[in-house]
Design a binder for these strands. Structure first.
Lengths: 212, 212
DNA sequence: TAGATTGTTAATCGATTAACAATC
DNA sequence: TAGATTGTTAATCGATTAACAATC
C-alpha cells in the first residue's frame, strides 16, 4: 500500500458517505450516481468523485455506483470490518454514555474494559462489564489487547492517565477532555472537544443575530 | 458590524486559542508573542497573526499580545460573556453527562431545562433541575427564553424532536445523533458526530499500522 | 536608538470545482 | 448506437505561509 497520502479533508468525509450509503441501503436503493448523492448530501458531484477516486474506481461509467458495494468499500477503508478493542477510563456519565452506545460495536469498536477510581462505582455493572479499579489498568492492558483508550476522566487527571495508557502501548486515544494532549509516545489522539463545538455554535448564533 | 466574512477555518480555531490563553493566564504569564504561542500550539506564527487580525489588531509591535486582554477579546468574539439559555432533550447518559458538565456555564451556556419521555426519569433531579416530561416542551419554550436545544435522544426520535424545537423558534441545535438534520426552519445546527470521530481514529490507526 | 514583533501584502500551497474524454 | 456517468486532468478558489515595512 504505497499509496499517495490522502488528505484529512477527504478522510473526515468518509464516515459521512458511509452514513448516507447506509441510509440508501435501508431505503432499498441499489444504485446511485455522484450527481444524486451530491444533491442529497449537499456537496458537489465533482468532490464525491474525487474523494472516491483517492481509493479506487468504485463506479461504472454510465451507471454510477452500486450502493451496497460502495458502502462496503468505504467500510473497509475505515476499517469497520476489523475489531478495535477499547477501554473506557472514567465511568462517570460520559463513560457510561459511551459504554451504552451500541452503534460503536456495529462499526467495529468493542469495549472490553471500564475503569474508575471511585469506590462507589468500581464493581458496578455497566452493560455486561464490571467497572474495574484504575489500579488494575496496567495488569489489564498487559493481558488483553487494547487498541484504543477512551478518556472520560476529569480535566486534572487526563494528562496523567493518557501518559499511563500510552506508556503501556495503547496506540489510540479518544480524548474527551478540553485539552490538547502532548504525549512523548507514538500515539494517535483524536479529540472530542465538546465545549469547542458548543462555542462555535455560540459564535454562529451571535453572528447571525448581529447581522440580522 | 459590516465586517468581511470570516472563514469557518478561523472560527474553529478560536476556542483553541481561548484554551491556550486561559492556560497561560493560569501560569501567570502576562504577555505572549505570536512566535511563542506558535511553538506551544504547533501552528505557525503567521497563521496566528492572520487569524487574530480578522477581528482587530490586538497586539502591539515589539511587545506581542497581552495574555489577559487577548483572552478576553477572544471570549467576546465567541460570545462567552453573553448567556445562552439551553435545554437538554433526552436525559439518558449523554444528557446527564451534559447536565453535569460545569465547564459550559463558565462559557456562558446555562441549562435551564431537561426533558425526557421515560416515566422512570421524569421527575428525577439532575443537578438542580427536575427532569420534565417531553409533553411540556412546547409550554416551557413559550414561557422561557431558549437559545439552544441539546439533542440527546435516540436516533429514531431526533428528526422529530429537532423539528418540534425549531418550529417553536429555538435558533440553535446541538445535535448528538449520527445524522445530518434537515430542518425547514431558520436554525443553526452544530453536530457532534461521535461515531464519525471514532471512525477517523480507526482509519488513522489502520493507516499507521499498514504503513509500518 | 536598536531590537522585537506586529499588521498586512504577496507568494505558495492545497483543496474544490469545472470540464471533458473514456467507456459502460 | 445514444445517453449517462465515471475517472481524471485542468482551472479556480481559498487557506496557509513567507516576507517585510510599520512601529512600539
Amino acid at each position: 500500500m504505497a499509496s499517495k497520502k490522502i488528505s484529512m479533508a477527504v478522510i473526515k468525509r468518509l464516515p459521512r458517505y458511509h452514513r448516507y450509503l447506509n441510509y440508501l441501503l435501508e431505503l432499498g436503493i441499489k444504485r446511485v450516481s455522484s450527481k444524486e448523492l451530491s444533491s442529497r448530501m449537499g456537496i458537489t458531484a465533482s468532490q464525491i468523485r474525487q474523494d472516491l477516486n483517492c481509493f479506487g474506481g468504485f463506479g461504472q461509467q454510465g451507471y454510477g455506483y452500486n450502493v451496497e458495494s460502495l458502502y462496503n468499500e468505504i467500510g473497509n477503508i475505515l476499517g469497520i470490518n476489523k475489531t478495535f478493542y477499547c477501554i473506557i477510563i472514567g465511568a462517570g456519565n460520559m463513560g457510561q454514555a459511551l459504554s451504552n452506545y451500541g452503534n460503536f460495536i456495529k462499526r467495529g469498536f468493542e469495549v472490553i474494559g471500564i475503569f474508575d477510581v471511585n469506590p462507589e462505582v468500581v464493581g458496578k455493572k455497566l452493560k455486561n462489564l464490571e467497572v474495574m479499579n484504575l489500579d488494575s489498568l496496567e495488569e489489564f492492558i498487559l493481558h488483553n489487547r487494547v487498541d484504543i483508550a477512551m478518556l472520560c476522566v476529569p480535566y486534572r487527571e487526563t494528562a496523567t492517565v493518557a501518559d499511563r495508557v500510552a506508556r503501556l502501548g495503547v496506540k489510540g486515544l479518544w480524548n474527551f477532555s478540553p485539552m490538547d494532549l502532548k504525549i512523548p509516545y507514538d500515539v494517535i489522539v483524536e479529540n472530542v472537544h465538546l465545549s469547542d463545538s458548543l462555542m462555535v455554535l455560540g459564535y454562529k448564533l451571535n453572528d447571525k443575530f448581529e447581522r440580522e
